[in-house]
Design a protein around this nucleic acid. Structure first.
Lengths: 151, 151
DNA sequence: CCTTGACCTTCCCACGATGGGAAGGTCCAT
DNA sequence: ATGGACCTTCCCATCGTGGGAAGGTCAAGG
């Protein structure tokens, strides 16, 4: 291994991207094929380490592999218009907001149900009643009508 | 097919759970093995349809298969303490809140970066600068210092 | 009766990102 | 030279979902 270069494991430690994932990113074409020693070991120089940092950070921001590939391409293109990058970021923001809204809806529904559930030894449970009826909150304080459907 | 019972496809239409997933839930043990016709076709009565509705609703609330299995068990246990159900719901709420917070953090970071990016033809892009530097916003209005690391 | 088309059955594969682990090669220090 | 830490590739599992192939079943219409 020549000076200034590190193995996958070391690169993983330096960047917080696991060795497994480094190999996987390479296989998926996110990263160019790594240089190899005579024995076939991958080795990485400073430029590659910086790329891995970039990938790590982008991944932490929730970009998927495809988006990261686009960002990497733009990163290495000195003439890119910043609008191209911004567009990718905004697509990602919209997606995040969509998912947040979905999860928020679930959380709020559950919180409302949990608040109505006394949570003691008794078997009465508005949570199960709601799941069984499937009626999205009919009225606060009124138990969902369990329709006698042969149960 | 006897009266009052429906095939998987029909059950799927009635409950919004795809036929594929109905079979999968059965295979995973979430649902008991369905009754079969002589020809091997699954068929479902009202009770099973109600169970599928329950599963659908629980799934919509973000419960994973394991949690749904627990909820089903509690549902069919008339003596269950409501506390048991509430505990599951609260675990789920905590998990949802955790994921929401993570996504929210990403969204906010990206929104800040996007706001700083003029998004025009010029190549200057705080978003890429941030990804490259990995420094979580040093100061608003100050470009992150790109350390000359042999790039 | 036979065909047609819609439906059912099982089985395998894919996704995205990640980890586990096996089988085997390499490198370095003792 | 031996052991342990590391590397290589390859396969499998996750989780919930869908696609599709290959084959059986059923009802309706000719």
């Amino acid at each position: 291994m020549s000076e200034d270069t590190v193995t996958v494991g070391e690169a993983a430690r330096l960047t917080g991207v696991s060795a497994k994932m480094i190999r996987w990113y390479e296989a998926r074409g996110l990263l160019p094929p790594a240089a190899r020693t005579a024995a076939g070991y991958r080795h990485y120089g400073e430029a590659e380490i910086r790329t891995l940092h970039f990938v790590r950070r982008a991944r932490d921001l929730g970009f998927d592999v495809e988006a990261i590939a686009e960002l990497l391409a733009l990163w290495s293109d000195r003439a890119r218009p910043s609008a191209a990058v911004k567009a990718i970021a905004q697509t990602r923001i919209a997606e995040l907001r969509r998912r947040i809204a979905a999860l928020e809806g679930m959380a709020r529904s559950l919180e409302r149900l949990a608040a109505d559930c006394c949570g003691d030894e008794r078997p009465d449970c508005p949570i199960l009643d709601d799941l069984a009826a499937g009626t999205p909150p009919p009225a606060r304080g009124t138990k969902p009508v369990r329709r006698p459907l042969a149960g």
